[in-house]
Amino acid sequence: MSLVINDLHVDVLTEDGPKQILKGVNLTINPGEVHAIMGPNGSGKSTLAYAMAGHPKYQMTSGSVTLDGKELNELSVDERARAGLFLAMQYPVEVPGVSVSNFLRTAKTAIDGEAPKVRTWVKEVNQAMGALGLDSSFSGRSLNEGFSGGEKKRAEIVQLQLLNPKYAILDETDSGLDIDALRVVADGVNRYTGQGDRGVLLITHYTRILNYIKPDFVHVYVDGRVVTEGGPELAAKLEETGYDAYIAAARANA
């Protein structure tokens, strides 16, 4: 049982036609593991996230991703979510007219296959929002509409907590957060991983969040490929050296 990425190639559809972004990615995330994917802008980190979740602009051209043995490419976006995959988005869209509470209940019902119990659900929602520093008035607001950047990220983690997927991809959840918000969000993620059997793919540009969420493995991406891998010590090294050496090496090999 694990989330397995095998020799994955992904094209992004642009106005000028498809453009290859991922050029053979391999990664296995076992339950209970936190994997950090780091890399400079344009390295393909977010492409990996969107392709796994099934965004229509990203096409898997070869290779595979399997979730507990299920081939993701054969599942629609909603089927992937129901299979246990969650993507905390870098830029959550605003959905006017759909209240947060209605959205959460609908999503929870879809994921669990049955409606949550009314009495405990409202309490659960309020607790999850409180833990992320969002007051209960957010329930009645339109989903993400008029939320600040930080509030959107907190709301993503509220969803992570309530939907409790088997595997979560966090796409630059740390970007744009001040230090207090970063702590609150990291605490939320740590509560989730604290269950012991959940897998996390933490995509980030900066090492800062790794002070709060401890990765078991660190993978560095440049130009659609893994250029180096290691344990938490790799993040500390990157903090000092930056990506420049890896970018130069990738260019030399190209």
């Binding site: 229509p56 976006v77 909603d78 992937r80 979510a81 006017p96 209605n102 959205f103 999503a107 969803q159």
Partner: peptide
């Protein structure tokens, strides 16, 4: 994409938005 990525099927997602 956003709504379906939370497990909501596409018809239900559209219904949710129009109803809202």
């Amino acid at each position: 994409f956003y709504l379906t990525s939370r497990g909501i099927d596409p018809v239900e997602a559209k219904r949710l938005v129009v109803m809202g």
